[in-house]
C-alpha cells in the first residue's frame, strides 16, 4: 500500500486529488472499504455512487467493491467505464475468448493495469487478473505504454518471491527494445535480487556474468555500452524460464554484425537481403569456429565504425585473409577502443 500511496502523491503532488474511496482503502484496507461503502450507501446512495463513478477512482477500489456492487444490485447505476471494467474482469476470470476480438477494450484494460499495478498482492485472484490484463494489452492490443508497469510488477514480485513467469514472458514477448533498456537500468538497483534477475534476462550480453554485482556501476556501464554498440544486431529469440535452464531471451546475430547488416529485433529478419557476394561470405563465415566468428564480427564492426573505406577493402578479401588481418596487430587497436 505504501508504494501506491507514494506514487499517487508523486503524480498528484497532493493526496487531495485522490478519490475518497481510494484514500479510505489505502488507509484502512480492502475489507474495511467494503463495510464503509455499505454504510455510505445506506446513508446516501447518490453520494456513494458519485464516489464510485468518479473519474479519479482507481481500479483496485472497484475490484474490491465488485461483490458489494452485485449484492446491492447497483450494476445498472455504474458509469460506462466501471461497467466495462467489471465485465472485463469477469471475462478474464472465465477465459472468455471475446477478449481476443474486442479491440475497443484497450482504454479500460489500460486503466485497470495502470491504476491497479501498485496494489499487486491484494490477493491471488487480483494478481492473476493483473497478469492477464498485461498479457491482453501486449498480445492483443500491441500496447507498449504498459511496459513500465509490467517491469515494476516483475521486479517487485521477484523481491517478494511471488509468481513472475507469465509477466516476464509477456514483457519479453513485446519484443521491444525498451525492455532491454529497462533491464539494463535495473543493474543499478540497490536490491541484489533485482540485479540477479536482470543479469539472468540479459544473459546474451557477453560481459554480464564477468563482473561482480558489487561493481554495479561498472557492470551497468559495460552492459549499456555493449547494448548500444550492438543494438542493430540484437534480435528476440524467445526462450523462457519454463523452457530451458539458461534462456536466451535475445541473441546477437554474429552474421549480421560481420556483414554490418541490421537485424530486426522483432522478427530476427535482416533489414536488407544478402547480395550474392554476402551469401558466399556468410557460407565461409558459418564454417568458422565460434571464436573466429566472434573475432571477425567484432573486428568488422569496429573497422566499419572507424574507417569505412578500410572496411570495404577488408570485407572484399577472402575469409582467411580477413582472419589474418583481424588476428594481427590491428586487433590491438580494436581492443584498445573497446
Amino acid at each position: 500500500m505504501g508504494d501506491e500511496f507514494k506514487k499517487m502523491r508523486r503524480h498528484n503532488s497532493s493526496s487531495l486529488y485522490m478519490n475518497y474511496l481510494d484514500k479510505y482503502r489505502l488507509k484502512n484496507g480492502a475489507d474495511k472499504l467494503k463495510i464503509h461503502f455499505n454504510n455510505l450507501f445506506s446513508k446516501n446512495k447518490n453520494y456513494a455512487l458519485m464516489l464510485l463513478n468518479s473519474s479519479t477512482l482507481k481500479y483496485p477500489s472497484l475490484f474490491v467493491l465488485k461483490d458489494e456492487i452485485s449484492r446491492l444490485d447497483i450494476s445498472n447505476n455504474l458509469s460506462a467505464r466501471n461497467k466495462s471494467a467489471l465485465d472485463i474482469t469477469d471475462k478474464i476470470f472465465n477465459n472468455n475468448m471475446s477478449l481476443i476480438y474486442e479491440k475497443d477494450n484497450y482504454d479500460i484494460l489500460s486503466w485497470m493495469l495502470n491504476t491497479g499495478y501498485m496494489v499487486d498482492g491484494l490477493n491471488q485472484r487480483y494478481d492473476e487478473l493483473l497478469d492477464k490484463t498485461a498479457i491482453l494489452l501486449i498480445k492483443v492490443h500491441n500496447d507498449t505504454n504498459c511496459l513500465n508497469a509490467i517491469e515494476h510488477l516483475i521486479f517487485s514480485r521477484h523481491r517478494k518471491g511471488d509468481f513472475i513467469y507469465d509477466l516476464v514472458w509477456v514483457f519479453l514477448e513485446s519484443k521491444n527494445p525498451k525492455c532491454i533498456d529497462m533491464l539494463v537500468k535495473r543493474l543499478l538497483s540497490n536490491n541484489e535480487k533485482d540485479i540477479l534477475l536482470s543479469k539472468k534476462l540479459l544473459d546474451f550480453v557477453p560481459c554480464i556474468n564477468s563482473e561482480s554485482t558489487r561493481n554495479k556501476a561498472l557492470l551497468y556501464h559495460k552492459t549499456a555500452k555493449w547494448v548500444k554498440d550492438n543494438s542493430n544486431f540484437i534480435y528476440y529469440h524467445g526462450d523462457h524460464f519454463h523452457q530451458t535452464p539458461k534462456p536466451s531471451t535475445f541473441r546477437l546475430s554474429l552474421e549480421n554484425k560481420y556483414l554490418q547488416n541490421t537485424t530486426h529485433l522483432k522478427s530476427s529478419e535482416n533489414k536488407r537481403s544478402y547480395t550474392d557476394f554476402e551469401v558466399t561470405a556468410i557460407d565461409s563465415f558459418r564454417n568458422l569456429d565460434p571464436d573466429s566468428q566472434k573475432l571477425l564480427s567484432d573486428y568488422s564492426h569496429y573497422l566499419h565504425k572507424h574507417n569505412s573505406n578500410k572496411w570495404r577493402s577488408w570485407i572484399g578479401k577472402s575469409i582467411s585473409e580477413q582472419l589474418a588481418i583481424a588476428q594481427s596487430g590491428n586487433i590491438k587497436e580494436y581492443n584498445k577502443g573497446k
Binding site: 478474464i92 477465459n95 472468455n96 475468448m97 477478449l99 481476443i100 492477464k132 498479457i135 491482453l136 498480445k139 492483443v140 507469465d166 514472458w169 509477456v170 524467445g238 523462457h240 519454463h242 523452457q243 530451458t244
Partner: peptide, 17 residues
C-alpha cells in the same frame, strides 16, 4: 525436449509450450 507454441492463446499462457 520442448514443444513450442509461438502463437499461444494469451488467455492460457500455460500452453506456451
Amino acid at each position: 525436449r520442448y514443444f513450442k507454441n509461438p502463437d499461444v492463446n494469451p488467455l492460457t499462457p500455460e500452453w506456451q509450450g
